[in-house]
Write a protein that binds this DNA or RNA. Structure first.
Lengths: 343, 343
DNA sequence: AAAGTCATTCAAAGCGCTTTGGAGATACTT
DNA sequence: AAGTATCTCCAAAGCGCTTTGAATGACTTT
């Protein structure tokens, strides 16, 4: 069913039918209703490509997901972020276009996407320090919003980020207040900007209390259950093991819990654990009482807001770069307790 | 940079430039090289919408993800499936278009997608029994591949599925061979076809050995850590608790492990656990030795193969429906052992 | 030398929509 | 009654590409 056929069927011009369906005022209400009814009945939906060509807008947003070739791993938060963003898009009548790209050929892919013009904007995932994509997209004049931030990038750009610094400072302080002095950090890969920020604020919180950093208590790996288990097991078998762990994801924390139990210790009593919790749908942190004390920030909500921000940016191209920061809540679970007293 | 500008720049017609870039033979090699060089330098990529309009092909595949409004949850395997499919698409020069839809308005969305013509094919996720989408897409004449199968749908259609029946029969038999008689099943929601199949084969394996089904040992929930923990805790406190668990996902199994430990029991000795393992990137089942005995089948690989199958279907529209079945491997970890002997 | 082939190239139509710049009909002024 | 404003509606151009059908010139063939 094309506009042409529909208009012939109605004995109207394509102009009138188009205007009737798109809500223009130069059409009588009677005609509009007649047109809408027929469109419904004949299941007419305008051809998106033709519409895009004519209007110059694709009504689609691109998400470019970096896939490191070494790890062949997709960040597990990605599914929830997409779910959030997707719901915002469908409300606004936008499509979501996803491209995977390995780190090598980022620039080419971004250039292609922009040249091909089948998205009106881009969400940049997984920013790193000095991320080159920000300069590139600015130069290519493509609206974009970064999920996260990129330290050391000094041109202005739009972003939406969890306040990782604040969250990890609070978490570290919380453990310090409980008397912990040997606090381990199981961080994500630190070329990722958020991981870099988390380490910085962990470090500064310790130093503010005059506690020297111990590199043996700081790990930076992919955030998997196994890595949490391995790192924690190793640290727990040290001469002076940590009394608390600060981890970057629920999955890592689950690995830490396993290591604690394997070492014959009790979580929340012998060893405390705080984790960041992205509030993933399939990985709820307990039901009534949270299991892990955690800094919680819904990545799904972040997806919604990032999408909305980008859509606003596209609608009003003159407004400059926008920022949004999301504060994580510190929720108290059963995984933390006072540092054990040594005789 | 448009074709028109490029051709003016080269003093050639649009026809010739288009043909040169698309590999048609009616162009001299010298001209072709000149055109390709200029296109490269000026960073020309044809406008995807215009190309699509002219050729009638979108060079994009749609993935429609069901999001149950009650649960607001995205299946965690989705990220890995997409990663697999996406890599196949980018190799073939296709885009991936993702739509989220809540169960209510499925039909309308599918009709719209087909009418709007901005995808050349669709991957159907999460088939249920009697899934109405299969009939609908067949009627709308849109190429599609189902990830999974739909029992009770009798029209032919293309699908790719893990052999869930075989996997769960083997897993159940494995536990039976170890002497277990009270085997619990923590299944996914059973309106999903794969969950239905899994239960059927679990049940038939038990019955084949003359063991009556105990409804108290069969749960069907969303596959979360919490649900695994809650179901297992409840069952372990029964008068006659199960000596083994069969779970539908690693995440559930992790919850079961927690319940076992919380009950003061040892996994692999007091209680055995077998799980299905989708081989997700961020949830590896151990490193050298698997933690859980599991039926393993990479959902990422399934994504690659489903995408390839659909692309083949689109390229050769005359071939009838195609099927692909993926066998899960049974891998032995430390979570299983002989049934404990009661005095 | 005329006719036929072949290799290159081009002008123009068409994909399905939006949008510009009227045109015709009706209602309102004076 | 003519003049003007207001409603409705339409024909046609244009978005950036592919593709058809034809033209051009060089080279063979008769």
């Amino acid at each position: 069913m094309s506009l042409k056929k529909l208009s012939e069927h109605l004995n109207l011009s394509q102009t009138t039918v188009s205007r009737a369906l798109n809500g223009y005022p130069e059409v009588s209400e009677k005609t509009r209703e007649r047109v809408q009814k027929a469109a419904q009945e004949l299941n007419y939906s305008p051809n998106a490509r033709a519409k895009g060509l004519a209007t110059g807008r694709a009504h689609a947003i691109g998400h470019v997901i970096p896939v490191s070739t070494q790890h062949e791993m997709v960040n597990p938060v990605f599914g929830d972020f997409i779910a959030g963003a997707g719901s915002a898009y469908s409300k606004a009548g936008y499509e979501m276009m996803i491209s995977l790209v390995d780190d090598q050929q980022q620039e080419k892919l971004y250039r292609d996407i922009c040249a091909r013009r089948n998205v009106d904007g881009i969400i940049v995932h997984g920013p790193t320090m000095n991320d080159p994509r920000i300069g590139l997209l600015t130069e290519l004049d493509m609206p974009f919003v970064v999920h996260g931030r990129a330290s050391n990038v000094d041109i202005p750009y739009s972003w939406l980020d969890t306040n990782n610094s604040r969250a990890f400072r609070r978490a570290t302080d919380f453990l310090l207040d409980l008397g912990h002095r040997r606090i381990a950090l199981l961080n994500g890969l630190e070329f990722m900007d958020y991981a870099f920020r988390r380490r910085e604020s962990y470090a500064s919180a310790l130093q503010k209390r005059g506690i020297a950093l111990d590199p043996a208590l700081m790990q930076s790996t992919e955030m998997t259950e196994i890595n949490g288990f391995l790192s924690a097991s190793e640290m727990l078998s040290m001469d002076e093991p940590p009394t608390a762990f600060l981890t970057s994801s629920m999955i890592t924390a689950i690995g830490v819990r396993r290591a604690i139990q394997a070492a014959g210790l009790e979580m929340g009593k012998d060893v405390s654990v705080i984790t960041h919790d992205d509030d993933l749908g399939y990985l709820k942190n307990g039901h009534d009482v949270p299991i892990f004390t955690a800094t919680r920030s819904s990545v799904r909500a972040a997806g919604v807001r990032a999408a909305e921000l980008l859509l606003r940016l596209i609608a009003n191209p003159t407004t400059g770069p926008q920022h949004e920061i999301i504060e994580a809540e510190l929720i108290i679970g059963t995984s933390t307790g006072p540092a054990p007293q040594h005789p």
